[in-house]
Amino acid sequence: MRSSPMLKAAGLVLAAVLLGLLAVQGSYALWNTAVSANAGTIQAADFRVSLTDTSVNNTTDMTLPDGTAAAIALTTTPAGTVLPGQATYAGVRLGNVTNAGGDFTIQAALGSTPGKTDAGSGLAGYLTVKAVAAAALDQCSSAALYASAPPADLPAMTIAKGATGVFCFQVALNAATPAALAGSTAAITLPIVVTQQ
């Protein structure tokens, strides 16, 4: 039987391919095995710090679910007006409520001197704010706690995982406050910054 050169060429190519495939296949036929390390998945902790007012029903996380910073209005003690020469007190408890697996200590500090706004009345200039670190909210209304604290002090404290710390505030109205400011109001803001230690 006579075959054309094309047919012969095709036959040669087919034979070469088959031989090549067989040669490659041979290397896969050797023994091999594989196992998984089962290392699992690593999960990052959250970074939750709770803020609680002296009125313990007033509480929030420092960071809201939408990622923005929370603001908490603090209850003053005694409640009501402040007379010249007298003071009112407030406090906030910070809780390190992270779910970290290992150690996770935070440092909480007042970020800057308290901001005071009075809508132009001038009352803010007669207010002195002192801040100190404490162990419990019920210490905040004790005047002795602030005796040695300078007005510009920015206290800081470390809080271990699962523990709490307290910042107490004293707002004193200068005894020389003009009577013309009676009935005026002022707002005081105290930024708190928390960092991982």
């Binding site: 095995t33 998984s36 390390a37 089962n38 290392a39 699992g40 998945t41 999960q43 990052a44 902790a45």
Partner: peptide, 14 residues
């Protein structure tokens, strides 16, 4: 925060 990192694909071959 709250991110996850999977190492489930790691394995060994002999």
């Amino acid at each position: 925060t709250n991110a996850s990192y999977s190492l489930g694909n790691i394995g060994y071959a002999l």
